[in-house]
Simulated assay, not measured.
Amino acid sequence: MENKSLMIRPMHREEVDIAVEWAAQEGWNPGVNDAACYATADPTGFLIGFLGEEPIATISAIRYDDTFGFIGFYIVKPEYRGKGYGIQIWHAALKYLEGCNIGLDGVVEQQANYQKSGFQLAYSNLRYEGVGGSDVQADAAVVPLSDLSPEVIEAYERPFFPVQRPLFLQAWLNQPHSHALGIMKNDQLAGYGVIRRCQNGYKIGPLYADNTELAERLFLALKSRAASSQPVFLDVPEVNTAAVALAEKYGMTVSFGTARMYTQKAPELPLDRLFGVTSFEIG
């Protein structure tokens, strides 16, 4: 049967929930508030493709500014795969991000297809799965991020992402069913992290710290916010061997992996201080 053209348009806010629901069906385990947070990053960057009245394809193409964008939620309903519909919405996303260095976290088996569109591998990310709870005592250096000014947090965040994204950051740090914690050293913020409720358990992300010892203390404080019966996930750049060792020290095992790829030169990020990725969907 000849393929029909998709009708592709930006999603309405409530349609972002469709992308998150489909991501859950793919086993990607999104957070329960991800749709609301992601929508703040670029309200027109979520695209949906229809055949008639039926939505059959989604993609997010977050244009943070004129230099950097990120692709995620690239999903076609299973019964419509292999029919040429996915490539239509893919091209729409690339057109929307024209002129940007574009990043994505792709499933490893799709690397070759992304390379055809000009993406090159920067490094791999690994999703580690463990459990919540903690046997350690409360750490006096760990504080709620709400105790700190947005300016202090944004200044600490700045090196870890290619561009500033203050609206998304505020939404992410203040989402329901989450804990955002910082760790102080010499009265200065020396790391922070967020743990949020997901459809299955909790995810920690981001997890930033000035060194491995601080990252471990922060990780334990975040992990303790989930019950010991709950699964906890941490997405780490494989190139940060200290982050990999930290996850494995606490009995976490790899459950998933992605290829972080860019269309231009990979941004220079402090990967040795990046112990947990914020999001595979929007970077």
Rank of each mutant, 00 (worst) to 15 (best):
S5R: 09
S5N: 13
S5E: 14
I8G: 08
R9V: 10
P10E: 06
E15N: 00
E15D: 02
E21M: 08
E26S: 11
E26C: 14
G31H: 08
G31Y: 09
D34N: 07
A36R: 07
A41M: 10
L47S: 09
I48H: 10
E53K: 13
E53S: 10
E54M: 01
P55G: 03
P55D: 06
I59S: 01
R63H: 04
D66G: 03
D66V: 06
I71V: 15
I75N: 10
Y80V: 02
K83A: 14
Y85E: 08
G86W: 08
I87Q: 15
I87T: 15
A93W: 05
L94K: 12
Y96H: 12
L97A: 02
G99T: 00
I102G: 11
G103L: 03
D105A: 13
G106S: 13
Q110G: 01
G118F: 11
N125Y: 12
L126E: 12
Y128Q: 07
Y128K: 07
E129C: 13
G130F: 00
V136I: 12
V142H: 03
S149Y: 00
E157G: 00
F161Q: 09
L167R: 11
L173V: 01
P176G: 10
H179V: 00
G182Y: 01
M184N: 12
N186Q: 05
L189T: 06
G205L: 01
R217T: 14
R225E: 12
A227F: 02
Q230G: 04
D235I: 04
T241D: 15
A243W: 08
A243E: 11
K249M: 02
Y250D: 06
G251Q: 01
S255R: 06
F256E: 15
A259I: 03
A259W: 01
Y262P: 13
T263A: 06
K265D: 15
P270V: 02
P270R: 01
L274A: 04
V277N: 09
